[in-house]
Every structure is written in structure tokens, then in C-alpha cells.
């Protein structure tokens, strides 16, 4: 695709793509490290995540400036335009992923216990695995352009949502059992929500990448469940 008559334009578009990939790599690493820090109560790693998020923010700002400058100077159209717009959107999502990872890391510092031996830890770890794989598959598809992967990511988001809902139930139970659990459980609840949100961002990114490659949108209607469904059976529906 990179055979513009103006070769400097090629160079710039390549630069955009490689920066997105770089940001993706960092966001993914931060998320993994944050989850690891949470589960194992690894203070050192948590601090590193908090620190590294600044770099992600700076990368996002740089990439946005580059995209704005390309739009201003080259007026990209069609696939080029979609590439630039997708890069801006994806980098926004990745920056948010970094923020969420940072927040998990901060709470890991606050919790001060290892979840390794706890049943809850297993649930959170499992959900994180799923959410982070969503992110990884999406970022791989940015390079390969595999549309099937992107569609699959969009559909699989509901599995992350379902796991989150079950963790939510579990945490409610713990808090009801013993009020001394509330502080830790509240932090964990936010962590779980953050990780679930990382999965949502992965889905957003997948949708934007799909648009970038095809020029078409994935269907917007996707099954959505969240913790508000918990106990809904008790609420009269009419």
C-alpha cells in the first residue's frame, strides 16, 4: 500500500503505524505488570507501572500531534485518512488502558496482601488473562489486518463482562460475610472494573482497526451484560 508518489508521505504513515505498535506494546506490558503486581502484591512492579504510564501519555500526545500535522499538510483521503484517524482513536484508547493499569497498580500498593492464595485472586487473574488476550489479539491484528480476529474480539467481550459480573457477586458476598473485608474488597472491585474496562478498550480498538482496514463498521449492537443485571430478577420488569 505504501507507494505514494510523494515518498515523504509514505515515511510519515509508516511512522504513525510504528508508533501505534509501540504504544500498544507498552500498554499491554503495563496491564500485565499491573495485574501481576496486584495478584502477587509486588510493590516494586506496581511502582514501575505507575511511573511508566507517563511515557505512554507522552507517546499519545506525540502521535496525536503527528496525525494532526499529517491531516493539515497532506489532506489524506480514503484508506490514508482512515489510517490516520484510526491511529488517533487507537492511541486514545491505549492511553486510557495505561491509566487503568496505573490505577490497578496504585490499588495493588493499597491492598498490601497477596491474592495468590485466595479464591478471589483466581477469578481476577482469570478475567485479566481474558481481557489482556483481547488486547493482544487486537494489537496483532493491527499489523496483520486479520478481520476474523477483530470480529472475534468484539464478540468475546461479553465473556469478560460475564466474568466481571461473577467477581462482583463474589465480592458482595465477601463484604456481607465480614465487614473487615470491605476495604480490600472495594479496592478489588475497582481493580476488576478497571480490567474489564481494558477489555472494553480492546473492543473499541478492534472496531477502529476493522474500520481502518475495511472502510466499514462492525455491527454496533453487541450483547452487553454488566453488574446491573445482578439481582435484576428481583426487579419487576414492567
Amino acid at each position: 500500500m505504501n507507494n505514494h508518489i510523494v515518498s515523504a508521505f509514505n515515511v510519515e504513515l509508516k511512522d504513525v503505524a510504528s508508533r501505534v505498535v509501540e504504544m500498544g506494546g507498552l500498554a499491554e506490558a503495563l496491564s500485565r505488570d499491573a495485574v501481576h503486581a496486584l495478584i502477587t502484591n509486588d510493590v516494586e512492579t506496581a511502582r514501575k507501572v505507575i511511573e511508566a504510564d507517563k511515557r505512554l501519555d507522552a507517546m499519545q500526545a506525540d502521535l496525536e500531534n503527528l496525525c494532526i500535522s499529517i491531516i493539515a499538510r497532506r489532506q489524506p483521503v480514503a484508506s490514508d485518512l482512515r489510517e490516520v484517524i484510526a491511529a488517533m482513536r487507537v492511541s486514545n484508547d491505549l492511553e486510557r488502558v495505561g491509566d487503568l493499569a496505573k490505577n490497578v497498580a496504585k490499588r495493588a500498593l493499597a491492598i498490601e496482601t497477596s491474592l495468590k492464595a485466595m479464591e478471589l485472586g483466581v477469578g481476577v487473574e482469570h478475567m485479566s488473562e481474558l481481557a489482556l488476550n483481547q488486547l493482544k489479539d487486537t494489537l496483532d491484528a493491527y499489523t496483520t489486518g486479520d478481520e476474523r480476529t477483530l470480529k472475534a474480539v468484539q464478540l468475546r467481550d461479553k465473556e469478560v463482562d460475564a466474568l466481571y459480573t461473577s467477581i462482583f457477586r463474589q465480592l458482595l458476598t465477601y463484604m456481607m460475610e465480614d465487614p473487615r473485608n470491605i476495604s480490600m474488597c472495594a479496592h478489588l472491585l475497582f481493580c476488576a472494573k478497571n480490567i474489564e474496562r481494558i477489555g472494553d478498550h480492546a473492543t473499541n480498538i478492534a472496531e477502529n482497526i476493522y474500520y481502518m482496514f475495511t472502510g466499514n463498521h462492525l455491527p454496533v449492537e453487541r450483547p452487553k451484560t454488566d453488574e446491573l443485571d445482578v439481582g435484576r430478577q428481583n426487579v419487576p420488569t414492567e
Binding site: 507507494n3 505514494h4 508518489i5 510523494v6 508521505f9 480514503a78 484508506s79 490514508d80
Partner: peptide, 9 residues
């Protein structure tokens, strides 16, 4: 069309 409007060969 794509090649023309995006300035490709």
C-alpha cells in the same frame, strides 16, 4: 480510484 485520490501510482 483509491490509487488516484490518495496520490499513488
Amino acid at each position: 480510484t483509491l490509487d488516484y485520490i490518495t496520490g499513488r501510482f
